[in-house]
């Protein structure tokens, strides 16, 4: 026991420059991420309505009142439904297209690296710019989508895509999917490139069809990187604020409102930090839960 303590002391003395080197980064993360996280969670239990900062209850403990307030709010309820819909639509669409693209790009094609670079363009473009570009393309007066559709006779007159309750959600989702595919694809492609060709050749010799070798060989091998990529992608999808806010601001009639935009609206438009913090905590829990379910699903198949 004595010896162990002594050894640990010696270890510490020998490695002190290491601790010194990681200290600034650890301090930065503690003060810039961990502390605000806990402060945010704390705020969700506090009365903090900036519209009425002189009220007696301002900055006092509120218990679960903020949570009760948002759960009885119809817009919040709709934003929860929208968040689930938004996540599932984005995730499924991105996963399928990215998988097909990665499988196609994994073949020996002429000009493969050129295609790969060009396909990465949507990922590299800043979110705000993508949002403004597509707002332009969807526009009722000058948008190319309307112009072409009318010219080709598919529409009798222009549609204000982003102003319509029926279409806005899908139009914005399309932009998020368009922007999200390359990231997912790169991960799958990197994993696919690690599988030696000989594995498929021997499977083919044994009479396995393409379909079978995909499910039996490819998928199990790339499962782990796929799971990591999907969770990272999920974080991006759920916090896809810029695209939604710049295209529709959650409208029309809250049809594109997700938890993230709801929390933003509560905080910086309605100035109620308490309920906004409560909504963001729900969002955080949603992300954690979704990742957990996904990881469980991946593990179960083993």
């Amino acid at each position: 026991m004595q010896k162990k303590v002594k050894k640990r002391g010696l270890e510490l003395r020998k490695n002190w420059p290491g601790y010194l080197l990681i200290a600034p980064a650890v301090l930065a993360i503690l003060s810039l991420s961990i502390y605000p996280l806990f402060r945010g969670i704390y705020l969700s239990f506090v009365n903090y309505n900036l519209v009425r900062p002189n009220e007696a209850i301002f900055n006092t403990f509120a218990g679960l009142q903020n949570y009760v307030k948002i759960f009885t709010n119809a817009v919040f309820q709709q934003s929860v439904v929208n968040t689930v819909k938004w996540t599932v639509v984005n995730l499924v669409a991105q996963l399928i297209v990215a998988m097909l693209l990665a499988l196609a790009l994994n073949k020996k094609l002429k000009g493969r690296s050129l295609y790969r670079t060009l396909i990465l363009v949507p990922w590299a473009v800043p979110h705000a710019i993508a949002a403004m570009t597509f707002t332009f393309l969807y526009n009722a007066n000058v948008g190319i989508i309307n112009i072409l559709a009318v010219k080709l006779g598919m529409l009798t007159e222009s549609i204000s895509w982003l102003g319509s309750i029926d279409y806005a959600f899908w139009c914005v989702a399309l932009v998020a999917i368009w922007k999200g595919i390359p990231f997912q694809m790169i991960f799958i492609l990197a994993a696919l490139q690690g599988i030696p060709e000989s594995v498929y050749e021997s499977a083919e010799m044994d009479g396995a069809s393409r379909w079978q070798s995909f499910w039996r060989i490819t998928l199990p091998i790339i499962k782990e990187p796929l799971a990591i990529a999907t969770i990272l992608n999920l974080i991006g999808i759920v916090s896809c604020f810029n695209t939604i806010w710049l295209m529709t601001e959650g409208g029309p009639l809250y049809s594109t409102e997700i938890l993230y935009t709801f929390a933003y609206r509560e905080a910086f438009i309605n100035h109620n930090f308490g309920t906004a913090a409560a909504a963001s905590v729900i969002l955080f829990l949603f992300m954690a839960l979704f990742s957990w379910i996904y990881l469980r699903m991946v593990r179960e198949k083993e």
């Binding site: 993360i29 705020l43 604020f241 930090f273």
Partner: peptide, 20 residues
């Protein structure tokens, strides 16, 4: 832990940031 901080939604940090 460093990796975990990426799971924190930006809006959850943004609200306390404003006060800080």
């Amino acid at each position: 832990a460093v990796l975990m901080t990426r799971m924190f939604p930006g809006i959850l940090l943004c609200i306390p940031y404003y006060i800080i």
